[in-house]
């Protein structure tokens, strides 16, 4: 560089060295934390409907699909709790209880337990009968995605 350019470079770098840290610090200082809600609006209603199974309680079963989705189902005499533990979520996933295995179709006598929670959070449902088949059904895909026998205790 020639002398005028060196002077311009020095002035530019000095200005930046003074202004940029201030501007950057101001940008970071104005960050806003993600809002956190202490209680989600529907959780209280759900909790009052069926009391959640205590952690580790009940008999544990696994439901899986060939494409890698896996759910954990825990049950005791009156409740079933389901949580997804692996794989991608499925759209409008509903839990059903049926007296018999309907194969690829949802059995006509299937009783809706409720929607399956998204993510890994567990939802507890009232168990309709002593022995039967727990079926996971994606209404948006119109298909049974997994099912397992739940034995009488």
């Amino acid at each position: 560089m020639n002398a005028p350019l060196r002077r311009r470079h020095a002035a530019l770098v000095t200005t930046l060295a003074l202004a940029l840290p201030v501007a950057f610090a101001a940008a970071i200082a104005k960050r806003e934390a993600a809002p956190v809600q202490l209680e989600l609006p529907l959780e209280a209603q759900r909790a009052s409907a069926v009391e959640a199974l205590a952690p580790g309680a009940g008999t544990e079963l696994t439901l899986e699909t060939s494409s890698g989705q896996r759910w954990r189902a825990r049950h005791d005499a009156t409740r079933i709790a389901i949580a997804q533990v692996a794989g991608a979520e499925l759209p409008d996933l509903l839990a059903y209880w049926s007296a018999r295995n309907g194969g690829d179709e949802l059995a006509p006598d299937a009783v809706l337990l409720g929607p399956v929670n998204g993510g890994s959070s567990e939802r507890t449902y009232a168990r309709p009968g002593a022995g039967g088949v727990l079926v996971l059904f994606s209404l948006a895909h119109g298909e049974v995605v997994a099912q397992t026998n739940v034995e009488t205790r």
Binding site: P35, P41, E43, G119
Partner: peptide, 12 residues
């Protein structure tokens, strides 16, 4: 979009 501190999410 509402999140709680335990990772629970609801979308109203």
């Amino acid at each position: 979009w509402v999140e709680d501190d335990r990772g629970g999410v609801q979308r109203l």
